[in-house]
Write a protein that binds this DNA or RNA. Structure first.
Lengths: 119, 119
DNA sequence: TGGTTATATAAGTATCGGCTGATATAAGTG
DNA sequence: CACTTATATCAGCCGATACTTATATAACCA
């Protein structure tokens, strides 16, 4: 599943927003999500699986509980794709600062590329 | 359709990559996409519609042709959601520069919020 | 004007992803 | 141990959405 498909679901985006504030147990996430979206525990668990299978979260066991946290990898992937377009709205200073901070990777002002081998 | 759903499709992402290099006619886009993905002209046209209906492209008529170009609005929306997470991987300098360049909007270091009224 | 080119829309189908309910697994607790 | 709590998985259903073919619309051209 592509990173953008992962973020295509509002429940998963919301879970990430919760995790942005810090680690939470699956149950803690479940309480909020089930309340806000009116879906079942398995549904939440399935979303957590998608997030973890695609590098958007990490999990750490704590007894019977699972502590979820944001894993930057997935989000960074999305951010990097976006980088190729940022010049369309961000002032030059922003782009420059971003480039600098990133250690001068990807110097070109070209559109990003992506694997098109599938489909 | 949510911005992330729009970018969830590989064809649409590819179209945006093409447009990142500059304006193109629907037909010009079609040639590339039909070749790369093996889909029909109407399929491409339908993707273009999604992109334009959701603020990812602009269109300008030129006789019988339609010239498509990147519209920053959709992409910026995605970028702003991501901003709330950038601190998880970007060095502080980067975040600071971004904030500055953006004119100090959204000063807090909080996760982004999104409309949850639907669903 | 009639024919061709450029693009969009419509209607129908099929695949895919998300949901539910049932159940499995494993860790706490008395 | 038996019972409960915490979380995950499974099978099956259902709706959304990305295709297809056929057709509409409109500009260009001889």
């Amino acid at each position: 599943m592509h990173a953008f498909d992962v973020l295509g679901d509002p429940v998963r985006r919301r879970i990430l927003e919760l995790l942005a504030r810090g680690e939470r147990t699956a149950g803690g996430i479940g309480e909020v999500i089930q309340e806000e979206f009116g879906i079942s525990q398995p549904a939440v668990s399935q979303h957590l699986r998608v997030l973890r299978d695609n590098g958007f979260t990490t999990v750490r066991p704590d007894g019977a509980r699972r502590l979820y946290a944001v894993d930057p990898r997935g989000l960074r992937e999305v951010d990097e794709w976006l980088a190729g377009f940022r010049r369309f709205w961000a002032p030059k200073l922003d782009a420059l600062a971003t480039e600098l901070a990133r250690g001068r990777r990807a110097r070109r002002a070209q559109p990003p590329t992506e694997d098109r081998s599938t489909r």
